[in-house]
């Protein structure tokens, strides 16, 4: 690895200040797994690592807490950005009330990575497109083309792609979008809240980055709206049984009136450069009885308008089938 210095900020303010001052020469570190891999491969070259885990104090960065409004059912849940994927996957509040998030966290990587990997780091993860990771001079490395477009694009985008065709690699991201989470961001200009669905950027809006974080900003927390009567699940297709990013995934959140769907929120992973919401599917399902035919139609609608590349047309079929299957099994849960 290149020379670097790792600094331990005493507070969030100090971390933000250091990141802002160093600019592109610094990188925030959560668990460190993905960052170290990128450092070793020279994909990023910061001189300074700002070790967020060193922040002591009561800033809630590593906590999961339920903040009741009137009753438990009306409680929001706040999750600190440094909560690990393991903690997220095991915490009773998350497991009981937001299973889609617990399942998504549990599906990521391996126990060793989940034990240190933070939810903020998972959300802000850089792409795993082969070409990006092998340092081809593509758009995301400051070049002027996307190599996957006419290359080995088996795992690239079928929706929302262009000029770059990466897919967003995070499992927790689609779950959080489907839960209508809000992200708390702290930066040199203060604090702001961004809806999860607005946090991620398409390549056609910004080629250089995958989310709206500006230099010096840190994702410090996630707020989940009350779970109410929502049921949810995360279905992930992987090419071996573990330790792989989603080929395609579905985060589904439903509220039911008996056998009738009251509300639906379906978000796809592995198909687009951002977690991919499909509002037409949500609209289709609202107020309807879940039948095989409806689930089938939802699947078809989810991929309507997909533009597969030369080697990833199978993702269209796969997504369609996964959406259908997930909706049927989730709606049948008791």
């Amino acid at each position: 690895m290149r020379r670097l210095v790792s600094v331990n900020p005493q507070s969030l303010a100090e971390a933000v200040d250091r990141l802002h001052t160093e600019g592109a020469s610094a990188s925030a570190v959560g668990g460190g797994s993905d960052l170290l891999g990128m450092l070793k491969d020279d994909l990023v070259t910061p001189d300074v690592l700002v070790n967020l885990r060193a922040i002591e104090g009561d800033e809630g960065l590593a906590a999961i807490e339920s903040v009741a409004v009137d009753t438990t059912e009306d409680a929001e849940v706040r999750i600190g950005g440094l909560v690990t994927l393991t903690q997220l996957s095991l915490h009773p509040i998350v497991v009981d009330r937001y299973p889609v998030l617990a399942e998504a966290a549990k599906s990521a990587a391996t126990p060793q990575i989940r034990n240190v990997g933070t939810v903020a780091g998972n959300i802000c993860q850089r792409p795993w497109c082969w070409y990006f990771r092998q340092k081809f001079p593509c758009y995301k490395h400051g070049g002027n083309r996307c190599f996957s477009r006419v290359g080995e694009n088996q795992f690239n985008a079928i929706l929302g792609g262009g000029p770059s065709f990466i897919v967003h690699p995070s499992d927790t991201a689609p779950a959080l979008v489907a839960l209508d989470a809000r992200f708390r961001v702290v930066g040199p200009d203060g604090e702001r809240t961004v809806a999860a669905a607005d946090f991620f950027t398409l390549p056609r809006a910004d080629l250089a980055r995958e989310n709206v974080l500006e230099v010096g900003e840190v994702l410090v927390g996630i707020t989940l709206p009350p779970a109410a009567a929502r049921r949810s699940t995360y279905a992930k297709v992987l090419d071996r049984e573990a330790w792989t990013h989603a080929v395609v995934s579905v985060a589904a959140v439903l509220t039911m009136d008996g056998d009738r769907v009251r509300t639906a929120r379906v978000v796809l992973g592995g198909v687009a450069p951002i977690p991919w919401s499909v509002p037409r599917v949500d609209d289709l399902l609202r107020g309807q009885y879940m039948t095989a035919a409806l689930a089938n139609e939802a699947g078809r609608l989810a991929v309507d308008g997909a533009q597969p590349l030369s080697k990833n047309a199978y993702k269209v079929t796969l997504t369609k089938n996964l959406v259908r299957r997930t909706l049927l099994s989730l709606s049948a849960q008791h």
Partner: peptide
């Protein structure tokens, strides 16, 4: 592999298994 992709370097950090190749010693 030195990339957190194989597990050969698994140790316990405060009792919890982690990839030692994917942590800086200073941490």
């Amino acid at each position: 592999c030195d990339r957190g992709e194989c597990g050969a370097c698994t140790v316990h950090l405060d009792g919890v298994p982690v990839y030692a190749c994917s942590q800086l010693a200073v941490w």
